[in-house]
Design a protein around this nucleic acid. Structure first.
Lengths: 205, 205
DNA sequence: CCGGTTCTGTCCAGTTACTTGACAGAGAGT
DNA sequence: ACTCTCTGTCAAGTAACTGGACAGAACCGG
């Protein structure tokens, strides 16, 4: 792969550690309480840091929530991406596997469960939907990139459309699961298979 | 196991990060130069930190080297310990497996290779031998602990002796490998098997 | 509708951690 | 003897985190 694990100077690593410590602290708190019940002070204390430091690092509660969601999203995207790369030989299979992986792990993810199941998380929920522009764009971009890099013959425009639609569907099913995750994944990907096969056919010729 | 991954406050994590960043930087430098050619300033710069900070964290070059070696030792001990725990049902097997694991990974370990193969590392070498008291004691203690916790019937005194002797042998073979690591491990452990079996026999009765 | 409470977001004084530049002393090389 | 370099230490300066305070907004109970 790329992304050499190059040596990181301490000051950079320390800032990253600070941010992650705060985000981890918030996740930990979410395991026992609703987001609405967790104050900025709680998060700071749980991270062993002053409230001021928290505000300096993330400007506001809203920004903090945004970053929290985005971080979780990136880790989902990492998993999805590697799942896709394991089926470069069979695009439909890649789609099915990635969607299945996403829905399955989404159903178990603590942060997502907090958003979906509990009532005090409207603020977080909005970040996935009405306020979800950064999330959708970022996720669609990464999906598009993995598609074009994995199947270079596919036109970027087609990949972008597919990425955008899949991300929106994924979010929808994550927010409102429809029974068994694997069944949903199989159903949805079967729906896309004709389109994917058409893409492959067009570009293969 | 024990050691719950409890939440670490940032200030503690940051100090640990600083120390590890410095130690990692030294290891990295060791991959391209002899220990004698690496100055404290080099290490500080490589870690993205001032020389003063390095001296504040580790009092002197000697202490730094000591910690460097001890950190590597702890990671070896972790591996050895888990190897032993996988053969709790067969003490002789545990001994053989652990010794083999140690010698094999010792032969590949960058820090140890730097000490053993290159000429500018006498200062580090001393930490394994003439200055090696802290190392030997610590390693023998951990070995003793894993033995008594794994086979509670064995007398602590016997475990201590065995631990001490094994650690010294391990260090000796690490410093001066004698041909194939696995062959050495098999030979040495065969030598101890009668003693181990005697221990087991005595305590089983 | 009002007083009490809590939380957010901001400010500031104070402490702690890291940086920068400097210097004496030890050791190696010329 | 002279120069160079590195170690170890000091002092002054800067940046990061702390702790206490406060105005404003939202909520709650009366």
């Amino acid at each position: 792969m790329s992304a050499a694990p190059q040596r990181v100077p301490y000051s950079v690593a320390a800032r990253e550690l600070l941010r992650n410590t705060l985000l981890d602290a918030a996740c930990h708190e979410l395991e026992s309480r609703h987001w609405a019940d967790i104050t900025m002070a709680d998060i700071a204390v749980a991270a062993g840091v002053s409230r001021q430091t928290l505000y300096k690092e993330f400007g506001s509660r809203e920004e903090f929530a945004q970053v929290l969601v985005m971080r979780e999203a990136e880790s989902f995207l990492d998993a999805v991406e590697s799942s896709v790369r394991q089926h470069l030989d069979a695009p439909p299979k890649a789609l099915a596997a990635a969607f299945d992986l996403f829905l399955t792990s989404a159903a178990e993810n603590p942060l997502l469960r907090a958003i979906v199941l509990e009532e005090g998380a409207e603020e977080l929920l909005a970040l996935l939907t009405t306020q979800g522009k950064p999330l959708v764009e970022r996720a669609a971009d990464r999906l598009t990139d993995v598609v074009v890099s994995g199947w270079p013959l596919i036109r970027r425009r087609d990949a972008e459309l597919l990425g955008d639609v899949l991300v929106r569907l994924a979010i929808s099913y994550a927010a409102l699961p429809d029974g068994d995750a694997s069944a949903t994944a199989a159903a949805v990907s079967s729906l896309f298979q004709p389109y994917v096969e058409k893409l492959v056919r067009e570009t293969a010729s």
